[in-house]
Amino acid sequence: MPMLHTVNKSPFQTTTLESCLRLAKKGSAVLLIEDAVYGALDGTAVSARVAKRMKELKFYVLGPDIAARGLGEAKLIDGVTVVDYGNFVDLVAEHDATQAWM
């Protein structure tokens, strides 16, 4: 299996998500956690970043971090899958390697 990328910084605050999306190869998975969950929201100034690569990458977002930020009811970009902590572990196990973008 290809690589799992995790991102934990807000796409409004740093270029971490942009860098990740520039380097991630087709078929990789991207898991948005902590402040990076804002990158999974539809209808923001940065939504296009994730949407643009939706066909080539699998996008996941961590549910507990979404709920903490009051986004439980918010509209996510089409194609983003919400996962829990157990799924997070599964994703790490399923992929050959994990790159944690800090």
């Binding site: 402040d35 549910g63 507990p64 709920a67 930020r69 009051g70 986004l71 439980g72 009811e73």
Partner: peptide
């Protein structure tokens, strides 16, 4: 991102 501090419906239990 400071505006997100005021977002309604925050639930930090998990």
């Amino acid at each position: 991102d400071g505006v997100y501090q005021l977002k309604k419906g925050q639930d930090t239990k998990a």
